[in-house]
């Protein structure tokens, strides 16, 4: 009997393996050279606040100045801060407060107060606090308008009462839900604190 063996499967099999292997090798080589070895750039942190300075100037006696500084080279947000108070308030005197909020990690230093906070005053609010310290303040008529008809709290006038020693706190609230300045120290609900700094050992002599 004559027998015709039909085309064996064998050829197809080896061809498949070769094709499969080649395509795997191709893909592997493609993926491994898609990379380059350049180093990434450091991120320039834009939202950083590194220096906060409160300068209280006696309206009557220009030489009478109380300065409070808070410095955080890595930013107030999560870096370690160093607070410093120089000078003492004089009982019965009136002071104008001048704020400076800057990012000194950039050269020249970035003026965060005038470039970011004041242009968006309706989303910010300064809250002040004192403890065991006879200081009172008023938000100036010329103060920047804050949220909902309030005063932002950038331009304030402070009156030192009887001699005392205590703490002074300044908080910047971002996007508060509601704010109130009927007590000029101010209060806010909701939002998040951009900074919350307390200066200790502040004295009125």
């Amino acid at each position: 009997m004559k027998i015709n063996y039909l085309k064996p499967n064998f050829m197809k099999t080896s061809k498949f393996f070769i094709n499969a292997f080649l395509s795997l090798a191709f893909v592997a080589s493609f993926t491994s050279c898609s990379d380059d070895d350049e180093n990434p750039e450091p991120v320039n942190e834009e939202e950083l606040i590194t220096n906060l300075t409160l300068t209280f100037s006696n309206i009557a006696t220009p030489a009478d100045v109380v300065t409070m500084t808070s410095v955080a080279p890595d930013g107030l947000e999560e870096g370690m801060t160093t607070e410093n108070v120089s000078g003492n308030f004089t009982a019965g005197a009136t002071y104008a407060l001048s704020l400076a909020i800057t990012n000194a990690s950039e050269t020249p230093a970035d003026d965060v107060l005038n470039d970011d906070i004041i242009p968006e005053a309706d989303e910010h609010f300064f809250v002040y606090g004192v403890n065991d310290l006879n200081l009172s303040l008023t938000r100036d008529a010329g103060d920047v308008d804050g949220p909902d008809g309030t005063k932002l709290g950038v331009n304030t006038t402070w009156v030192a009462g009887d001699a005392s020693t205590g703490n002074l706190q300044i908080i910047l609230v971002h996007e508060p839900d509601s704010v109130n300045d009927s007590n000029p120290f101010g209060s806010a609900t909701g939002g998040s604190e951009d900074f919350n700094i307390t200066f200790t050992g502040v004295s009125i002599l």
Binding site: L52, S70, L76, E77, E78, G79, E193, I197
Partner: peptide, 9 residues
């Protein structure tokens, strides 16, 4: 804890 410009974290 670390003390930051936003208080203690």
């Amino acid at each position: 804890f670390t003390l930051t410009g936003r208080g203690p974290f």
